[in-house]
Nucleic acid binder design. Structure first.
Lengths: 240, 240
DNA sequence: GACTCAATAATGTATATACTTAAATGCAGC
DNA sequence: GCTGCATTTAAGTATATACATTATTGAGTC
């Protein structure tokens, strides 16, 4: 997942700055040398220095202010890049056999509850309940709503073999998404479905997906996935 | 959290491309126009076009191949940027009163268990157990190990008022970090400590933090935070 | 047809230059 | 001391240009 290291000059400058920040030599708030100082130091043009700095600004390590200079940004949070693979890919990536179990599929007009979850005001949708298996052990329980106004093709798709997440990821790419991760106790039905004891702690991952950033944004899907807490962990890595 | 919109030409080109991808008009694998076509379309230089494209490549929306062109990247995961604020900031950000309760503080040579968690081979460390309160309701239970070889100053800090996470974030900036999120059932002691029923589902957030990307990396700290699942949710947003 | 190899065309990198923009600085006047 | 204003300086944007790199294309050969 690491970027291929490049021997380009701007990449070297970038790495040099990065390592001085990472090592703690330059702390947040520290004003790093001016662009013209870097260009002297490396005997290159300002554009080259600028390219390095801009890329560090984009990744949040630096912050520039006109006239004042460029500063090491203050980390206000622990940032991490969470990459949630689609479940089939995740299971198969672990060398296990994936199997999907479609529990229910219902095409209906949005109920009040659906509207609240999908964040739409009306329309038809597809409601799916399914279980994901890894080597015959339940891996996740999924409840999903798909907005048919946004993705009419979904009405024709056979979700008894293809997980809805995989299909959507391939067919409705590059959407905006919001995730909510919490923990819940398995109710009796969930416990039975996931083969865990009643009240077992589960990771609940909710995801809202939509297209477009403006007012005319279009809700695509809502998904809620429950994972047995003792078999599953989300991992995230911060690298800058 | 949204970037300030810029009216620079390269930013406009960027937005135009972005919106065509986000709207689904250009799907993954699609070859977008060549740089020289963009420069004709906008009547600008190639460097300006290049700036827009590079920034979209950096954020993972595009992918360039020499000679072949620039393509819409295939989203293989649901990416999300997880920003985990330090607990005090998080609580106070919600308008609640923060209070820290230091349960134990122990300076010791690393035990076998410590070594495994902190991922060091030996050395002195500081082990801290504390509870974070929001308006007199327990918010999180924290178990933390700090490697004194990496952060000797920590030995002198008074962690009865200042949460270790806040202090570390301010004093050991820009580190690498790995997060692991899972769900567990509260054991009797934890339940009592967090004022939740026994076996209540809790979000368990583990974080390993170190400095430097090479072999000579230095382990800073290990933290495990338990949050009552019914009072707490991690949220993450993907925006591209 | 399959293989080799050179021409081609697109991105990648870098330079030198010029003008714009915004904020820190310092000076003048009250 | 404080305020307002002009100055200055560093980053921001953009251009035109050149050469490097590399994967594709296609022509020529076996």
């Amino acid at each position: 997942m690491t970027r291929p290291i490049s021997d380009a000059l701007h990449a070297r400058i970038r790495r040099d700055i990065e390592s001085r920040i990472m090592s703690g030599q330059w702390r947040p708030g520290h004003r790093i040398p001016y662009e013209h100082e870097w260009m002297e130091a490396y005997g290159c043009s300002r554009m080259t220095v600028n390219k390095a700095l801009r890329s560090l600004v984009q990744s949040g390590l630096l912050e520039s202010r006109k006239r004042a200079g460029t500063f090491v940004a203050a980390p206000r949070f622990h940032r991490a890049a969470l990459e949630i693979p689609d479940i089939r890919a995740e299971v198969e990536g672990q060398g296990l056999t994936y199997r999907l179990d479609l529990l229910s599929r219902d095409r209906r007009k949005a109920t009040e509850a659906d509207k609240a979850l999908l964040r739409v005001s009306s329309g038809d949708l597809l409601a799916i309940e399914c279980r994901h298996f890894a080597d015959d052990l339940p891996y996740a329980l999924e409840h999903r709503l798909i907005n048919l106004a946004a993705v009419p093709e979904a009405a024709e798709v056979d979700f008894s073999t293809q997980p809805p997440g995989s299909w959507l990821l391939a067919h409705v790419p590059w959407t905006e998404a919001e995730h909510r991760i919490t923990a819940i106790n398995a109710d009796p039905a969930t416990a039975q479905s996931l083969h865990v004891p009643e009240n077992a702690a589960c990771v609940a991952l909710e995801r809202w997906t939509w297209i477009g950033a403006g007012r005319d944004d279009e809700r695509i899907t809502y998904a809620r996935q429950l994972y047995p807490g003792d078999r599953y962990a989300l991992t995230a890595h911060f690298h800058a």
